[in-house]
Every structure is written in structure tokens, then in C-alpha cells.
Design a protein around this nucleic acid. Structure first.
Length: 374
DNA sequence: ATGTCC
């Protein structure tokens, strides 16, 4: 197999705050058998054994545990037909609900349209989930590249919809079945277990995309709006690539795809997000980008630090004036903007490294997380 | 992250 030393690249500047523990995880993961390249992005932070905000390229072996349970998790971005000047934010915020609960429409038909089979997770299709997942109505804050903006048929007058969600219980069950057999170890790509995992993985990736699409549809229909998809990409997946004539396996753990055109890099819920155009040497950065601001504090740290600093009602209205619908108090603390690093710094590092050009920034108006208190 | 987990 591979006896060469793996390449490790940490894409960060002095202004990016990166924990030593995350860098240690990056290095240790890079030492796994068959690893060719490990890339850490400016949003790198510690995860469960392996870091988040990183991409790993292997040959001969795949490591499903690196991807985690939320296979296919990612960002979808839609343009609605709602006009910014006609926004009724208070009324809309009052009306939005239920996106964490099962959809009452025809899931079977929606699955069929995405050419997906029925599974035990049908009832979760179209639901946001917990943690850092959200659906957010946005306005265009600033267009930096008019040409690319126009190429995507985007209008500054229209409101946008950004959805962060994944494969819910489906990905979880796929990882669990793998881990029961192999724990955190990899498997040879030619093995039956690898083929079986990859087939289910690919389905979970498509399911997660259909999930984001249904969430956008549900959100828009509450506002009597239509929406059109602009961008969709997963930051948790394994994909096959060619590197110097060899087949390699790219593991993304919180790393956005760079090889499929424009991508969204979200901020935290109180900040702008960015629509960017990848411009770099793709293989050298493992065909990937940062996937967001990256956590600064763990969930439990955030809870204790932020609880003393803010009242819940101060967190449901952000510095940019946007509304955050999150009636679960713990989650509101865990996901407060202060718990995350500064997205501007992450974006600047990617720009300075020649990896992206900013097309536009997007201002949050209403962020929906959950109406339920637990 | 997860119809989570005591």
C-alpha cells in the first residue's frame, strides 16, 4: 500500500483560532493506513476522535467513521420569488412552525421523484433535525462579483433561503451498522463491506439532498412563495476522485465541495453567510473548502458561558436585527453566535489562499431552528 | 449528529 508520508496541509492564518487538540487530531488521522493527504480548513475544531473542518484523501481503504453519523449533511440554497421590499418579517416569523415535525404531505411521491426507496426514515424527510441545523430566510447584503451573481440568475431584490440539514436517522443507522462490525477502523475498498457501505452512503447523500429540498419547499409554502434551487452540496461524505492517475477516496468531515461550482459558506446564526466561487488548485486542497465559521466553544462550554451573558430574548434577536426561532433554551445557548469563530476571518483566509472569490454576502432575516422546547 | 440519554 502506501509507504510515503502523508501530506498534511493546514489552511489557516495567524488570525484563525485553531485549537491544538484539533491539529493533533488532524495529524493523527493523517497517519491512518492509506492516507495520502489531510487538509484542515480555517474552521477546524476538535471532533469525536477526528477533527471537523477537514478533508482526507486515502487510497485502497475507506474510513466511514471519519464521516460520522450525519452522512450527506450539507447546505442547500434557494432563490424565492418573495421581494425584499415586501417582506413581512414579524408576520412570517409568527407563522413559521412545525419544520422539525413530520411533513403531512406525500413523502412517498417526494421520494419517488428523487428516485429514492422507502426506508424506516420516511417520516423524517422534510424535517430539520437538531444541533446546528437550520433553515434561514436571507436578503442579499452585498454583491461582490456581479458577473457570477448574474450567471446564477440571482436578483438582489429577491429573498433567499438557506437550509442546513442532513440524513437524520438514516445516516445514523448506516454508520451504526458499519461501526458494529468495524468500530472506527477502515475497510479495503474492494471488500463487500465497503461496497455495501458506499451504496448505502450514496443513498443517504441523495436522501439528505431531498430532505433539504423538502424543507425549503415547506418553508416557502408557509410564506406562499415558490423557490428555485441555486446551490446544493454536502460537507459530510466520501467521494471517488482521480489523483495523478490513481483512484482515491475523499472523506469530507465538515468540508464543503469545491469541484462543483459556486458554494455557500454559512456564518453563525447572527452573521452574514457567503456565496463563493472556488478558484483554487482543487486536488491540493482536497477538492474542498471550509464549511462555516467553526465552533469556538463546545456545547457545554457555550451553555455555561452564554447563559450568564444573555437572556433568551436577547438571543432570539441578533445584532443584525434578524429573528431566531429557537424555543429550546439549551439549544439557543449552544448555537449562539458567540460560540462560533468569526466567519469573516475564515473567508479572508480562503480568499488570501486563492481558494475562493466571494460572489455575494447574505444577511439573515429569519432563522428557524425549532418551536419545541425540548 | 441521533424519535439521543440517565
Amino acid at each position: 500500500m502506501n509507504s510515503e508520508k502523508p501530506n498534511i496541509r493546514l489552511i489557516a492564518s495567524g488570525k484563525d483560532w485553531i485549537e491544538g487538540a484539533a491539529v493533533d487530531q488532524l495529524k493523527r488521522t493523517a497517519e491512518l493506513p492509506g492516507m495520502r493527504l489531510a487538509v484542515g480548513f480555517p474552521d477546524l475544531h476538535p471532533g469525536k476522535g477526528h477533527p471537523v473542518g477537514a478533508a482526507f484523501v486515502s487510497s485502497g481503504t475507506i474510513y466511514p467513521y471519519l464521516i460520522g453519523n450525519d452522512i450527506g449533511c450539507g447546505m442547500g440554497f434557494w432563490q424565492t420569488d418573495l421581494l425584499r421590499r415586501k417582506a413581512k418579517l414579524d408576520r412570517w416569523a409568527g407563522r413559521l412552525s412545525d419544520l422539525e415535525n413530520p411533513w403531512e404531505g406525500d413523502v412517498g411521491e417526494w421520494l419517488q421523484r428523487a428516485e429514492l426507496p422507502t426506508t424506516h426514515s420516511d417520516h423524517s424527510l422534510g424535517t430539520i433535525g437538531g444541533g446546528n441545523h437550520f433553515a434561514e430566510l436571507q436578503a442579499v447584503e452585498k454583491v461582490e462579483d456581479e458577473t457570477e451573481f448574474a450567471k446564477l440568475n440571482l436578483s438582489k431584490e429577491k429573498l433567499m433561503l438557506l437550509v442546513h440539514s442532513g440524513s437524520r436517522g438514516l445516516g445514523e443507522s448506516i454508520l451504526r451498522a458499519y461501526v458494529d462490525q468495524h468500530r472506527d477502523a477502515g475497510v479495503a475498498v474492494e471488500s463487500t463491506d465497503a461496497k455495501d457501505y458506499l451504496q448505502k452512503h450514496d443513498e443517504a447523500v441523495r436522501w439528505a439532498k431531498a430532505n433539504r429540498s423538502l424543507i425549503a419547499h415547506r418553508f416557502a409554502s408557509v410564506l406562499n412563495a415558490a423557490c428555485e434551487n441555486v446551490v446544493d452540496g454536502s460537507h459530510n461524505s466520501i467521494t471517488r476522485h482521480e489523483l495523478a492517475g490513481e483512484t482515491v477516496w475523499l472523506h469530507r468531515k465538515g468540508a464543503a465541495p469545491a469541484e462543483t461550482g459556486p458554494m455557500i459558506i454559512p456564518g453563525s446564526r447572527g452573521t452574514v453567510s457567503y456565496l463563493v466561487l472556488p478558484t483554487g488548485d482543487l486536488p491540493a486542497a482536497a477538492w474542498s473548502l471550509a464549511h462555516g465559521a467553526g465552533r469556538k466553544w463546545t456545547r457545554s462550554e457555550s451553555k455555561s458561558r452564554i447563559r450568564d451573558r444573555y437572556r433568551p430574548d436577547e438571543l432570539s434577536q441578533t445584532e443584525l436585527g434578524s429573528r431566531v426561532i429557537c424555543e429550546n433554551r439549551d439549544l439557543l445557548y449552544e448555537e449562539a453566535p458567540d460560540a462560533y469563530k468569526k466567519i469573516e476571518v475564515v473567508i479572508k483566509t480562503l480568499v488570501d489562499e486563492g481558494l475562493i472569490r466571494v460572489i455575494a454576502s447574505l444577511r439573515p432575516l429569519i432563522t428557524y431552528k425549532t418551536r419545541s422546547s425540548r
